[in-house]
Simulated assay, not measured.
Amino acid sequence: MADDLTDSLRDSPIPPDELPDYLVDAIDRQDPDRLRLVSNYALSLAGWKERQAEQEVSEQAEQDPDEVPDEWDEDDWEAVKEEAVDKAGIASTKGTITTKTINGNDYYYLQWREGEKIKSQYISPVSPSSSE
């Protein structure tokens, strides 16, 4: 039993592969009190970022998922929206339509919540004439 305890004190926890080396190195150099501060801060920051993302989705949810955008023919819109719903693997009644601007171009996305995470699925450009 004493050997197990000694072994566990010798073996440092293994960091997740997803953490960059520079972050792991910086964390490893900290004493236990500072590590607890970092842990509390990281948890608070994660919660804040999740709330920010929720607020962004709420603010972007300008369009009722059943409403056809002015720029679109109803049949064309239903086809691209249904394709996005199929790719997302969600019920067609779930989610909201949002507009995102990327590199100066506007795009429609389907967004929904899965537990604590907000998921997105590309639908199309806002203007159907520039659709792919």
Score class of each variant (00 low, 15 high):
Met1Cys: 09
Met1Trp: 07
Asp3Val: 09
Asp4Val: 11
Leu5Gln: 13
Asp7Gln: 15
Ser8Val: 11
Leu9Val: 12
Arg10Gln: 15
Arg10Lys: 15
Ser12Cys: 09
Pro13Val: 06
Pro15Cys: 05
Asp17Arg: 14
Glu18Gly: 09
Glu18Tyr: 12
Asp21Cys: 09
Asp21Pro: 05
Tyr22His: 14
Leu23His: 07
Asp25Lys: 13
Asp25Gln: 14
Ile27His: 13
Arg29Ala: 12
Gln30Arg: 12
Gln30Thr: 11
Gln30His: 08
Pro32Gly: 06
Arg34Pro: 00
Leu35Met: 14
Leu35Tyr: 05
Arg36Cys: 10
Leu37Ile: 11
Asn40Gly: 11
Tyr41Ser: 14
Tyr41Thr: 12
Tyr41Cys: 10
Ala42Tyr: 06
Ser44Pro: 03
Ser44Cys: 05
Ser44Ile: 08
Ser44Asn: 11
Leu45Gln: 12
Leu45Met: 07
Ala46Gln: 14
Ala46Asn: 12
Gly47Pro: 03
Lys49Pro: 02
Glu50Asp: 13
Gln52Asp: 10
Gln52His: 07
Ala53Trp: 04
Glu54Phe: 03
Val57Ala: 09
Val57Glu: 07
Ser58Ala: 14
Gln60Ala: 15
Ala61Asp: 00
Ala61Arg: 00
Pro65Asn: 06
Pro65Lys: 03
Asp66Tyr: 12
Glu67Cys: 10
Val68Arg: 01
Val68Ile: 08
Pro69Thr: 05
Pro69Cys: 01
Asp70Gln: 08
Asp70Thr: 06
Asp70Phe: 04
Glu71Gln: 13
Glu71Lys: 10
Trp72Phe: 07
Trp72Asn: 02
Asp73Ser: 05
Asp76Ile: 01
Asp76Glu: 14
Asp76Thr: 07
Trp77Val: 01
Trp77Gln: 02
Trp77Ala: 04
Glu78Ile: 08
Glu78Trp: 03
Ala79Phe: 12
Val80Ile: 04
Glu82Lys: 13
Glu82Ala: 15
Glu83His: 10
Glu83Cys: 07
Glu83Leu: 13
Val85Tyr: 00
Lys87Ser: 10
Ala88Thr: 06
Ala88Gly: 08
Ser92Cys: 02
Thr93Arg: 09
Thr93Pro: 00
Lys94Cys: 05
Gly95Ile: 01
Gly95Gln: 01
Thr96Ala: 14
Thr96Ser: 15
Ile97Ala: 00
Thr99Pro: 03
Lys100Pro: 00
Thr101Met: 04
Ile102Glu: 13
Ile102Ala: 11
Ile102Thr: 11
Asn103Arg: 13
Gly104Arg: 03
Gly104Asn: 02
Asn105Ser: 13
Asn105Cys: 08
Asp106Cys: 02
Tyr107Met: 00
Tyr107Glu: 02
Tyr107Cys: 00
Tyr108Cys: 02
Tyr109Thr: 01
Leu110His: 03
Leu110Glu: 04
Gln111Asp: 15
Gln111His: 10
Arg113Lys: 15
Glu116Asp: 14
Lys117Phe: 06
Ile118Met: 10
Lys119Tyr: 09
Ser120Glu: 09
Gln121Tyr: 01
Gln121Ser: 07
Tyr122Asn: 03
Ile123Met: 02
Ser124Gly: 08
Val126Leu: 08
Val126His: 01
Ser129Leu: 06
Ser130Tyr: 05
Ser130Asn: 13
Ser131His: 15
Ser131Leu: 11
Ser131Arg: 15
